[in-house]
Amino acid sequence: MTPAIVVRDLVKRYGDLVAVNGVSFEVGDGEFFGILGPNGAGKTTTLEMIEGLREPDSGTVEILGQSPYPRNSALLSRIGVQLQASAFFERLTAREQISTFAALYDLPSTRSDELLEMVGLTDKAGTRTEKLSGGQAQRLAIACALIQDPQVVFLDEPSAALDPQARRNLWEVLREINSRGKTVVLTTHYMDEAENLCDRVAIMDAGEILRLGPPAELVRGLDAPVRISVEHGMLSEPAARQMLADLPGADVDRPDTVEEDISSIIITTTRPSPVLSELAARDALAGLQVRGATLEDVFLDLTGREYRA
């Protein structure tokens, strides 16, 4: 499959600061691609160079086989962009924003209502954008990015500053867009967003891509221990230690640990299967929770520090 986007050795410096330091990746046609990293990792600068808003100091970008810089009108009508801030005309209603943006692509405003419905804003069509909530404004910005039916859609931190429910609604919209065959590139600093939405994720920190792959693969490659917790009273802490000691196949390098908090006993182990069967045999599964590694653990593993968005 021909890639929708090819990025080669992108570098961007601001004075002494190297914002992006040799970033390369490809995004396949129809793929949902995420760039994940904390603030200041260089995600937005990378995205802006791909969109053609900034000229790279070195390196190349191709979208659908064309270079986005300098400003390339032919390409601009094939890509859709949602910017970090909601870029709307002052004092226009949601529907007026969409029809204005449609005209910028020389299109009639016939699809306005369809797009409003798609992002769940039908009842806000006559509301001025200043009066929309953060989540509504983000969804409208996404509708405005889709007006020309682009092949590639760029979303810069679409769920920043949204409450959990608004984020879930937004995710639905984004999945819907991707399921229509569009290539989606998204930056985010939310680990769960990348895990939930993206086919592949590039984890960025300090201007470089640390790891790139499907989220599940990145987590699996980590071979991180699993946290198993059961309700208090099912098992005392010494009994748990004794149980683990009696189980065969202990990992000498990464020994199991047992912790206790107010409500549960937590076992961290690299051999979850025998531990779970032993707990089942003892009928001590009440309140059972099993939590595998997440992208957060991958980040911790890669950078040696806690992930903080």
């Binding site: 601009l76 890509i79 970090q84 943006f101």
Partner: peptide
């Protein structure tokens, strides 16, 4: 409000 930027990304 980044409208200029958005216009720059439209043809």
């Amino acid at each position: 409000k980044k409208v200029l930027r958005r216009l720059r990304l439209a043809p």
